[in-house]
Amino acid sequence: MYEIRFHGRGGQGGKMAAEAYALAAFLEGNYAVSFPFFGAERRGAPVKAFTRVDDKKIRIKTQVYEPDYVVVLDETLIETQDVLEGLKKDGTVIINTQRKPEEVRLSKPVKCATVDATGIALEVLGRPITNTAILGALARATGRVKIESVEQAIMEKFGARLGRESGEKNARAARMAYEQTLVGTSQGGKEFVPRPQWLPDVHEMPIGGAIGTMKTEAGLIGIGSFVENKTGDWRTFIPAIDKEKCIGCRFCWFYCPEGCISMVEGKAEVNYDYCKGCGICAHECPAKAIEMTREVKA
């Protein structure tokens, strides 16, 4: 049996990718299961999905903790979390990036496959939907399933939902990715400090779960504690405010869903710790003082 963990963002189709891969493996006579992380994440939030493949019935129902393969649909995720967590010793990570494997810096050097799935998706589908292209790279990097099975699975799964033409386009994206995938070894040494979790035992657990505000070793909890949850890593686009043009009207301050714009000396200023990059501020700015650009992360 081997296990795959998919990292993406809510709405990017990581779950569909995990399911399509399971279907591809099934079409080759395997037994395969696929499931999302059962959370309540919203669109844009980092999410995970899993696939297990074996040549006999898979009975285990736990979540996947030590995957053989890790697939990263969104490059920005490797900056904020250790996607290699639990990856088996000889495991492989497959990343959607324009960079070569040797240029990717992770927590440790591992077998790494890279492909510009976003570029391929934009070229073939006209939209940056990468969940099919990445499957081609996965097939190439692992050699576990034939690309033909991946194509067939995509046509069945996506074709049924989006129409035959769309199914074929998505299959073509996978094929292109398969052909363009580079395999090598990543750099290591990138450090991550995992956010500690507050896990009270039964004696510490508040009665009925009621909480006020508490400072714990895991940070602030309770009333107003979301302020320590930095949602800036959800962002793909980033606003830049031209202070010269800003007229101090406060529209962006008022409309920002995060409430992460403040007024400093009469001018708007974004707190990027929270900004999810929705672009409302730019769209509503009467002075056209805010510009959204695709964010390039370190």
Binding site: G39, A40, Q197, L199, P200, D201, V202, M205, G208, G209, A210, I211, G212, T213, G222, I223
Partner: peptide
């Protein structure tokens, strides 16, 4: 101010 009845993940419900 206190929060009563917050949406909670499995990490907390079993102890309750």
């Amino acid at each position: 101010p206190m929060a009563i009845g917050t949406f909670a993940p499995p990490e907390y419900i079993q102890e309750l």
